[in-house]
Amino acid sequence: MNMAKTESMVGAGRGNAARPLAGRSREDILVGADGAGSALFLMAPALAVYAVFTLFPIAVTFWLSFTDSNGFNTDAGFVGLENYRKAAADPILWQSLWQTLLWLVYHVVLAGGLGLGLALAIARLRRSQVFFRTAFFLPHLVSLAVVGVIWANIYDPFFGLLNTSLAAIGLGGWTQGWLSDPSLVLFSVNVASSWQGFGLYMLLFIAGLQDIDPSLYDAAEVDGASAFQKLVYVTLPGLREVMTFVMSLAMINGLKGFATVFVMTNGGPFYQSELITTYIYRLAFQSQDHGLAAVLCILLSVLAITITVVFNKWRARLRR
């Protein structure tokens, strides 16, 4: 770095106000002893917030996992790896882990798929696009707890909209116990959750579609490509970046699934819709076993980190 040039740039840019910095290089200012101090000073509020609201809770959770804490006892005893042993031997934990992975897949496919499908359907509309975009995005503005209540009523086996509609159109044989059938319940609740989530993914896909060069469609048209071929060879490759982003977002949202399950089934019947998140809540706030709940929090974090790392590596490989 040409120091004289830097000095003149700093001086010229700031006039008299920059006098105290005169004679010092950018490196001096930013990474020198004084600069580091200034940088730290400026970052301190953000660091403090990060430390208090992120690092400290992580550390406490980690510590709790080695104790017999019930969440309120200040004299929680150190129990070593006992909570980890209990977790490993807990069949409900493994069931909830498997169901969490299933939940994640359902969410990516249902919410992501619906978001993509609707984006493709309305992206070309000129006049009515704003209407449909708004209408489809509206569920995303409703809180998940409210969504849970709405869908629990839709699924009501005796009075619900779904079963009564099926019966009304002569498909009474298709009526189900949507929240009572062990093989359906997780999917049913996920539909409700995905219904709330697809609007955001749809907007992201629409933004992605708008970024695709229209001349590519013209070229495909000239080459005689069908609508399906344009979708496969122009649209989907053009959406690759958005798709990977939506997938990672959907996976993170999938892992965080809690509210709809909590409201609609509370993990039942007989743990068939239990997710790690709902099981953590059950352990921490119903059974007051904060030690075991902390182990599950760590497990969930490890799961989220693993999925993110693997997914990012896969994404990087796709780019190459």
């Binding site: 629990a152 086996p157 005796f158 116990g177 009572s180 059938d181 089934t265 019947p269």
Partner: peptide, 16 residues
């Protein structure tokens, strides 16, 4: 007792 009752809450069952 219908299996479907497992999907009901107090409110839903009371409504019945």
């Amino acid at each position: 007792i219908k299996k479907e009752m497992a999907g009901l809450d107090l409110e839903g069952a009371s409504r019945l």
